[in-house]
Design a protein around this nucleic acid. Structure first.
Lengths: 142, 142
DNA sequence: TTTGAATACTTGTATATACAAGTGTTTGTG
DNA sequence: CACAAACACTTGTATATACAAGTATTCAAA
């Protein structure tokens, strides 16, 4: 219940973080059936769709730092959702059977998440907002 | 350099988080002259503007969990930017001279941050985006 | 008036994320 | 060829944030 007349509402840094936090909460709830936090789910989808993908590519796709991807992949490897294979200086990431088996459920959760915020924000509005927000994120990239 | 054709760009959870991360990076840079991370700066502005404010109110204003506010205030008290006074079950937060002295600089940094993303996103666009993003964050609040 | 519920905050613990520095590999240039 | 620069990843460390459970205070109802 933040005050609408708050000065914060005029700051994109603040607003974007607030929105991200709210959505993260929703996403965590919706991804609960997978037993994974949303970022892990997204990463698995990525690897399932592109077996052999490299951490750097994943980092670019997800707009995360390379070190963050290392950490995520590490955990998912521990839990046998994927494997890493070194090839020279490069690493290739492959999904395991466990990961492939989970893929439909992840996608289901993803759709449920979409349905959830589309319901709260309006279908058209949420679609437009997603585009605008994504475009802005791209423009701010270093 | 995320692929524009990425599936991610259609997910608001993902896009909002990406935007928030980029803006946090900008904000950290712009707030560097204050010696504070952006959240601390915003909190101080809040307390400077509302001496005696309670943590709960701050949490509402900033859309943060109460425990997060406790943590932020704790640090700022250690560094003598503010003081806490208990009154029954309530706590009141007051700025110190140090905090009041810093206030203009914080506001300057805030303006610089605004100028920075307005330049990158376009003035009108960033203004509109801020409104839309804030409105969405409000709608998603529990 | 006692007691149970609500309120306001704190504490323990966990997570996602990043930066900077480190390691190992490849590539290009003198 | 040798060696420096560039690349791809990992590791150490730090931060913001949250949830759940805990403490202390106030309020309401029997």
């Amino acid at each position: 219940m933040p005050s609408d007349q708050s000065t914060y509402c005029r700051c994109l840094y603040y607003s974007a973080n607030a929105l991200a936090r709210q959505l993260s909460k929703l996403a965590e709830e919706e991804f609960a059936p997978t037993g994974l936090a949303p970022s892990y789910g997204f990463l698995l989808m990525n690897v399932n769709a592109h077996p052999g993908i490299q951490p750097t590519e994943v980092a670019h796709h997800m707009m995360l730092a390379a070190s963050t991807v290392t950490r995520l992949v590490e955990k998912l490897e521990e839990e046998v959702y994927l494997t890493r294979e070194r090839e020279g200086k490069a690493i290739h990431i492959y999904p395991t059977a466990k990961s492939k088996r989970l893929d439909p459920k992840i996608k289901e959760c993803w759709r449920a998440l979409y349905a959830r915020y589309a319901e709260l924000l309006g279908k058209e509005e949420s679609h437009k907002l997603t585009q605008d927000v994504f475009a802005a994120a791209l423009k701010l990239e270093p």
